[in-house]
Design a protein around this nucleic acid. Sequence first.
DNA 1: AACACCAAAGAGAACGTTTTCTATCGCCTA
DNA 2: TAGGCGATAGAAAACGTTCTCTTTGGTGTT
Lengths: 349, 349
Amino acid sequence: MSDRRNERATVKDVAARAGVSPATVSRVLTGDYPVTATTRSRVQRAIRELDYVANAQARALKGAGTRLVAFVMEDVTGPSFAYVAKGVEHQATAQGRLCLICTTHGDPARELAVVEAMREQRADAVILVGGGFLNDEYRERMIQFAYALDKAGSRLVLCGRPSLGADVPTTVVEYDNEGGAYAVTSHLLSQGHRRVAAVGLARLDHTTSRDRMRGFTRAHEEYGVPVDQALLRAAAFTQADGCAATRSLLAERADVTGIVAATDMVAAGVYEALREAGRRVPQDVSVVGYDDIPLAANLYPPLTTVRVPTEELGRTAVRLALNPGEKQHVVLGTHVVVRESVAPVVVRA
Amino acid sequence: MSDRRNERATVKDVAARAGVSPATVSRVLTGDYPVTATTRSRVQRAIRELDYVANAQARALKGAGTRLVAFVMEDVTGPSFAYVAKGVEHQATAQGRLCLICTTHGDPARELAVVEAMREQRADAVILVGGGFLNDEYRERMIQFAYALDKAGSRLVLCGRPSLGADVPTTVVEYDNEGGAYAVTSHLLSQGHRRVAAVGLARLDHTTSRDRMRGFTRAHEEYGVPVDQALLRAAAFTQADGCAATRSLLAERADVTGIVAATDMVAAGVYEALREAGRRVPQDVSVVGYDDIPLAANLYPPLTTVRVPTEELGRTAVRLALNPGEKQHVVLGTHVVVRESVAPVVVRA
DNA sequence: AACACCAAAGAGAACGTTTTCTATCGCCTA
DNA sequence: TAGGCGATAGAAAACGTTCTCTTTGGTGTT
């Protein structure tokens, strides 16, 4: 086992070796000040020979900024988070930033600790990904975070959740959550479905759930179909919960012909429950999801769902946060991806 | 738009407000030195009133270390990476560390830049996730990284790839790649399959591919079944490549009865091609995958595959790297998860 | 040939902490 | 009551950079 000694070379060491002052070494490093060709090459040789690497902390301390972007989410394994993360990471490296990743597990205490840690780290931007909670205390705390970060010279970014108010210093990158739900529900209604269930949209404490529910409701209004409260089932955004909710739904309302799942993962649970019950998709029941994760195309039958521009969401979040000149509130579009999980309703004679 | 001024309070400000010296504030903060109760509360009040947050960079510079752990992979969206990341993140926060995430896209130049950046950041550990390339130049560079990081007081961790040599200062957390491939191939052979194809295992430049191929070969030897070279198909670890490779396989060798896919994503591609060709799983062709990502259970029919302890891999990587006292080379086990994608081969009369 | 000027390099302060060393005060012991 | 000691608190250095201010030396102008 190595002893992990700490013998890194410093600017001073390089300077001594090259026979110049530390200031000159720094100037060679940053290249913003004239240095003789011979001096420069002497310094560069010393750097190579000592395998010198600059100390990012010292640089940041001196005022250069940390060049860190923080990415905060509930859980790393959420299937669409990876794509947002990809977008964030791409844009961050494109703009010379490193990416910090943190999870909250939906725990307010942990969230507080995380944002505190980001303040300590002096991250250029703190990107909150995914829906937010609909509760006043939570909202208040977020607003405080926004001001605290702003005061510390960094930026709170809401990625995939609505604004906290026009005057709060945040960057907001949303997508048209309601519009997507409206479109995909309309797709179902247009195929003649009149008893359409919503699985996972009944959570009233979450922005994502609420907005998708709004789209569901609006589509029904537009088609003049009353929303049947007994067809609304709560479920967390997981396959297991989607499956359980669908089981109970089928037990009570066997007449359902279409199901809108809150997310593709929930839809996977819906499929599972339908298969157990011996109901075929789409012949007996049509199903639609939301998010368009890779799983959707691999379900059997391939799932009709709503495309969310996850990667673009991440890229945009970083770009806006780092370029104060740009518009700090953007709404990206969504659209329906038609696959094979929806069929016209059969009219029973 | 806010003007992003930079008016954070410092220890000095807090000291002035509390009417004490900076040293005393620091002592209240770290709590490792006796401070009068009244002084302490005066300082704490000043901290609250000024909303003071310590500067992590200054602390790190003073010698406290950065408390950063870096997580380096090819691509954030790789389905099993998320689970390794989860393990890393959990263990890192449990040990009071923050998580840096970087991607290389398999590009050696970018990889070099990333490791350089991690050296600048003085990360406590740099965790390389996923298989490595089998080429001497690459291996040499990795060895150099290991020494460079070691010299800088941090640790290179190989997570899911074999050691670079016993004397190289690294931490290695592998899983039994070959054993899993051996077991799952044996499972197929035990069901009477004798013409078993390997899709995606023919890449000879990658440790993951090579080790899984070894298990495939060893199982064949044990069963006395010669490996048919024409049944070995190269493919990247993606669905698209798996599909394409299977198409060409089916076109040339319609007599295949079993397929070992290099990964579950490749298996999804195999399913796709089989469906196109009108071959049923498992009645006409049995298929097995590797990794046991959530997708595997949702494919139709559910995929028999090899469970890789991804999350534990990540947790262990961090734990070992941060605790020099522990054994610095660990091999975790794998096991076959039997689902419904394998059937006994039908004996043609 | 004297002077001004410009390019190049060095000296030293500063960033915000922590930590060692030193100073002060009150109290206990002899 | 003098001396010493323990408990607190302050002063100042240090971490590794960058940057401002000087200094130096060479060149061009008159």
